[in-house]
Amino acid sequence: MHWLFEPGLFSNHTVRTALLVGLIAALVSAVVGVFTVLRGQSFAGHALTDVATAGGAGAFLAGVAPIIGFVGGGVLGAGAMDAIGVQRVKGRDIATGVVLGAATGLSALFLYLSATSSASTGATQMILFGSIFTVQPSTLPVVAILSGVVLLTIAFIARPLLLSSLSIELAATRGVRVRVVGLVFMVTLAVSVGLSAIVIGSILSTALLIGPPASALKVVNRFWLGAAIAVVLGIGATWAGIVFAYDSYYWIPSHRALPVSFFVVAFVVVEFAFFSVVHRRRRGRPATAIEDSSHHVETQWH
């Protein structure tokens, strides 16, 4: 196993913190992601990443832990989206894209100011593409508390959320406060985007949030089993990504380690491709027939 686990991997405190944070973030992202995919809100999740990026960049500029900025920006964004009623907005909406462009512009400003005003470098990589190896052990309690709150909230609203994801009309007639449940969920989504962002960076956080749940939901019919598989896939991709990134330092002659986020995203994509193939094989139907039946699944960009 020496080829896989390079020397010092597990005795390294940085790596241990990274593995722990990665575990928690992947767990929360997978659970929240299952509902996100189910509700067809992957675009909302994506839109939140743009706002979270600005938050993270702003936090970096202000010298605050990025997680605070990611989560703060995300929650503000979720509130704004609820206020103007774009929770279910789809990716083809030009208006949202243009407005989110302003958030990206703001990120550009903050990152530029961070680069020029302080001696610290690497803000861009750290915020956009993540750098889990720089997570301080002191951030762990924040991560743990946020995750605990998100998981408990999801457990609390799970059934009404499921019903309203299935049909708003059915949920409303059964007395579910659809709007409240939706808003609470958006806030948990924003927090998950933040957690995922500290692992793989804010503009890549969609991958951890959407990828493992989408893979799992392809092959199972049971919701909670799907969530469990998503958790396993998410943690698997994250841990493998961390280990490979650590190892890559030894592979490359120039000793330049590849980013964790690249490996995590790559593993998530491989998992998704694998499960898509399994899904098609199992159905025994031509691919086009399946895709046709999902014609109402809108495309998103980015």
């Binding site: 189910l38 009404p160 019903l163 579910v176 999902s294 699944v297």
Partner: peptide, 23 residues
């Protein structure tokens, strides 16, 4: 949504407790 991993049985079950909070 055909992609939605919810069985017919689960939909009926949500008729019992779909409006209840908690698990």
């Amino acid at each position: 949504d055909p992609e939605m991993p919810l069985r017919a049985r689960d939909l009926v079950a949500l008729g019992v407790d779909g409006h209840r909070y908690g698990l």
